[in-house]
C-alpha cells in the first residue's frame, strides 16, 4: 500500500495511529496472554510441573483429548457431506440450509448446554426412559460430547462450503466422465483441492472443542476426575484459590491456542489460503 503518495504532514498522524493501535493490541491481547504464563510459573517450575501431573489434572487432559477425538471427526464428516451437497448440486432452500448450519455460532454456549439438559436431564423429555435403562448422558461423558459437537458444529462446513462452491464442478465432472467412481473422484480430485481448507476448519474446530467452557459446564456436573475437562478443571482450581495450579492447566490451553494460531497463520501465508472470520 503506497502511503508516500499521501501528503507528508500525515506522517505524524500515521505514527500516532500506529502507536494507538499497537498499544491497544498490547494491552488487550498480549498482556492477558503473558499474564497466563507469568501466573502459571509464579511459584516456580516445580510447582508448575506438580500441578500438571496431579491425577485430577491428568484425567481432565485425557477427557479433553477424548471429547475432541470424538467430536472433531464427526463434525469433519458432517462438514464434508454438507459442503458436497451444497456446492455440487442445485436445490431449493439452499440458503436456508446454509443459515441453519451457521446457527450454532449465534447461540450462547450456556443455551447450547441447556437444550441437552432439557432433552436428556433427569427432568428432561427422555430423562425417565434413560434412568430406567441405566443410561447417563447428562453429568456424564456423552453429554459433554454432544454439547461440544453443537458448539463446534459449523466450523468445518463453513470453511468448505464457500471453497467448494468457488471450485465448481468441472473437475469432478471430468473425472466421472473418464470413468472414475464417485468415491474415487472425491478422494483423488476433490480432496486434494480442498485439503488446506479442510485442515483450516479442523484446526479451528479442534481449538474450540478443547477449549469450550460454557456449554460443557452446564452438562458436566463437575465430577472431579470423571467429567471435568481442562477448562472446567481451571475453573475448579481457580475457585479453590489454587491460582498457580489453575494457571498451570490454563497455560496448556494457552499453548494450544498459540499452536493453533501459528498453524493457521502459516496456512494463510504459505498457501495463500484465504478464509473468513472464525467465529
Amino acid at each position: 500500500m503506497s502511503t508516500q503518495r499521501l501528503p507528508r504532514r500525515q506522517s505524524a498522524t500515521r505514527t500516532v495511529l500506529i502507536l494507538g493501535a499497537l498499544a491497544f493490541i498490547a494491552f488487550f491481547l498480549v498482556l492477558p496472554l503473558v499474564a497466563v504464563f507469568a501466573e502459571a510459573l509464579g511459584k516456580g517450575f516445580a510447582a508448575y510441573g506438580a500441578a500438571l501431573v496431579d491425577p485430577d489434572a491428568v484425567s481432565a487432559i485425557k477427557l479433553t483429548l477424548l471429547v475432541a477425538a470424538i467430536s472433531v471427526p464427526l463434525n469433519l464428516i458432517f462438514g464434508i457431506c454438507a459442503a458436497w451437497a451444497v456446492a455440487k448440486f442445485d436445490f431449493r432452500g439452499k440458503s436456508v440450509l446454509v443459515t441453519l448450519i451457521d446457527l450454532p455460532f449465534s447461540i450462547s454456549p450456556v443455551v447450547a448446554g441447556l437444550v441437552y439438559v432439557l432433552l436428556f436431564g433427569a427432568q428432561g423429555w427422555f430423562g425417565p426412559w434413560l434412568v430406567e435403562h441405566g443410561v447417563r448422558i447428562i453429568f456424564a461423558v456423552p453429554g459433554i460430547v454432544l454439547a461440544t459437537i453443537l458448539v463446534t458444529f459449523p466450523f468445518v462446513a463453513r470453511e468448505l462450503i464457500p471453497l467448494m462452491q468457488e471450485q465448481g464442478r468441472v473437475d469432478e465432472e471430468a473425472a466421472l466422465a473418464l470413468g472414475a467412481s464417485g468415491f474415487k473422484t472425491f478422494l483423488r480430485v476433490t480432496l486434494p483441492n480442498i485439503r488446506w481448507g479442510l485442515l483450516y476448519g479442523v484446526l479451528l474446530c479442534n481449538a474450540r472443542a478443547m477449549g469450550e467452557f460454557g456449554a460443557v459446564s452446564v452438562v458436566s456436573g463437575h465430577l472431579r476426575g470423571l467429567t471435568n475437562t481442562m477448562p472446567l478443571q481451571v475453573e475448579i482450581l481457580y475457585n479453590e484459590y489454587n491460582f498457580a495450579a489453575a494457571f498451570a492447566v490454563a497455560s496448556l490451553l494457552a499453548l494450544l491456542a498459540l499452536v493453533t494460531l501459528v498453524l493457521k497463520t502459516s496456512l494463510e501465508w504459505k498457501f495463500g489460503y484465504s478464509h473468513g472470520s472464525a467465529r
Partner: peptide
C-alpha cells in the same frame, strides 16, 4: 501502514478466537 512485525501482530488479532474463554477470564 507498514511497520515492523506487522504480520505477527496481525495474527495475534485472532487470539480471542483461539484462546479458551475460561483462560481469558482468569487472566
Amino acid at each position: 501502514y507498514e511497520f515492523p512485525d506487522k504480520r505477527l501482530l496481525n495474527a495475534m488479532i485472532d487470539l480471542p478466537f483461539a484462546l479458551p474463554t475460561a483462560v481469558a477470564g482468569i487472566a
